[in-house]
Simulated assay, not measured.
Amino acid sequence: MLNLYEYWKALSETEKNQFCQRVGVSYGYMESHLIHGRKKPRMETIQAIVEASNNKLSHKNLFEFFLKKSNSAA
């Protein structure tokens, strides 16, 4: 299954903008913080990401993505 970074990189610029609108975050925030796992999103944002991806990303997948990123930096 795709992770958030892979999913994001596969989108066109138009799709990226639409995805951000559906998630409720700015393009810059998504590009700078979320796809690289620098910030951990709120549960509401994780839910919005799952919905905006049409369930191509799962809650489990997103939890692993964000937790793995923070654990590898520790």
Rank of each mutant, 00 (worst) to 15 (best):
residue 12 S to K: 03
residue 55 N to G: 04
residue 2 L to F: 11
residue 33 H to K: 08
residue 51 E to W: 03
residue 63 F to K: 11
residue 34 L to N: 09
residue 46 I to E: 02
residue 49 I to W: 00
residue 45 T to G: 00
residue 16 K to Y: 04
residue 60 K to H: 07
residue 56 K to M: 13
residue 53 S to G: 06
residue 62 L to E: 05
residue 9 K to E: 15
residue 56 K to R: 14
residue 37 G to D: 05
residue 74 A to Q: 06
residue 44 E to N: 11
residue 62 L to Y: 04
residue 17 N to D: 00
residue 16 K to A: 08
residue 35 I to Q: 00
residue 15 E to V: 03
residue 48 A to Y: 01
residue 58 S to T: 15
residue 69 K to P: 03
residue 4 L to F: 03
residue 70 S to N: 09
residue 67 L to P: 05
residue 19 F to T: 07
residue 24 G to C: 05
residue 58 S to P: 01
residue 37 G to R: 02
residue 45 T to C: 00
residue 18 Q to C: 13
residue 54 N to G: 08
residue 37 G to N: 02
residue 38 R to V: 14
residue 33 H to F: 10
residue 7 Y to L: 04
residue 36 H to R: 13
residue 21 Q to R: 14
residue 58 S to Q: 12
residue 73 A to E: 11
residue 27 Y to C: 07
residue 22 R to L: 11
residue 10 A to W: 06
residue 55 N to H: 14
residue 26 S to T: 14
residue 10 A to I: 09
residue 43 M to P: 01
residue 60 K to T: 09
residue 39 K to E: 14
residue 30 M to D: 01
residue 11 L to A: 09
residue 26 S to M: 10
residue 74 A to F: 01
residue 48 A to T: 08
residue 36 H to W: 10
residue 63 F to A: 14
residue 43 M to V: 04
residue 23 V to F: 01
residue 22 R to Q: 13
residue 53 S to R: 07
residue 64 E to N: 11
residue 15 E to Q: 05
residue 5 Y to L: 09
residue 28 G to V: 06
residue 7 Y to S: 08
residue 47 Q to L: 08
residue 40 K to E: 15
residue 49 I to M: 10
residue 15 E to F: 06
residue 53 S to N: 06
residue 53 S to K: 03
residue 71 N to H: 06
residue 16 K to Q: 11
residue 13 E to P: 12
residue 34 L to G: 11
residue 12 S to D: 01
residue 67 L to E: 14
residue 29 Y to K: 14
residue 64 E to M: 10
residue 67 L to W: 14
residue 45 T to M: 00
